[in-house]
């Protein structure tokens, strides 16, 4: 079984971070995993994206031209990656910042009002990315929430006071994914 996902957004939205958390969680649960970033000038304030693969078997190509899932944190990312999604794939759209619906009708779509919910329910707009990650693992099961939360804890040594908010954001994302099933 192989899960692959492209996570994309503006620099500063934390797309690289949730990608690394997912990859770390995969490693901690004993899966094979690759995290691959876009790099170069596009990282300087422009859009950023990363590809994460989680698999039971040795991972061949780290390049995934047609992913099983796309997490789009902003409009340019949706425009760029929606067409590449595999038929039957999963598209998670940050509805707070993206003013259009999915154009594809052959994919599974979750709309997450991530920025607004992060502020209203978690108390920090910075948690929008964690809500999106929660929605992804909730729908795919690529990693369990427990392992994702321990990956977060590992990453936040010394900043434990932010841990409850991040855990709540993961739970909220999972809830949204379940509601839209």
């Amino acid at each position: 079984m192989q899960y692959d996902v492209i996570i994309a957004g503006f620099g500063g939205q934390g797309v690289m971070l949730i990608g690394q958390l997912l990859s770390n969680a995969a490693m901690m649960q004993g899966s094979r995993t690759v995290w691959m970033p876009s790099y170069g000038p596009e990282m300087r304030g422009g859009t950023a994206n990363c590809t994460i693969i989680v698999s039971d078997e040795e991972i061949g190509s780290p390049v995934v031209p047609h992913p099983h899932a796309v997490i789009a944190m902003n409009r340019p990312s949706l425009d760029k990656f929606e067409p590449l999604l595999q038929p039957g794939g999963l598209l998670i759209i940050n509805a707070s910042l993206i003013d259009r619906k999915a154009a594809r009708d052959d994919v599974d779509v979750i709309y997450v009002d991530a920025n607004r919910l992060a502020e209203a329910e978690i108390g920090s707009a910075k948690s929008a990315n964690m809500i999106m990650l929660g929605a992804y693992i909730g729908r795919t099961g690529a990693a369990t929430p427990e392992i994702v939360k321990s990956a977060i804890a590992k990453k936040m040594v010394g900043k434990e006071k932010f841990l409850p908010a991040n855990e709540a954001a993961i739970d909220l994302g999972m809830k949204i994914a379940a509601e839209q099933a």
Binding site: M27, T33, V34, W35, M36, Y39, P62
Partner: peptide, 10 residues
């Protein structure tokens, strides 16, 4: 290549 340099793996 740049992929080996930039990507993460366990």
């Amino acid at each position: 290549d740049g992929l080996i340099g930039q990507m993460m793996e366990p």
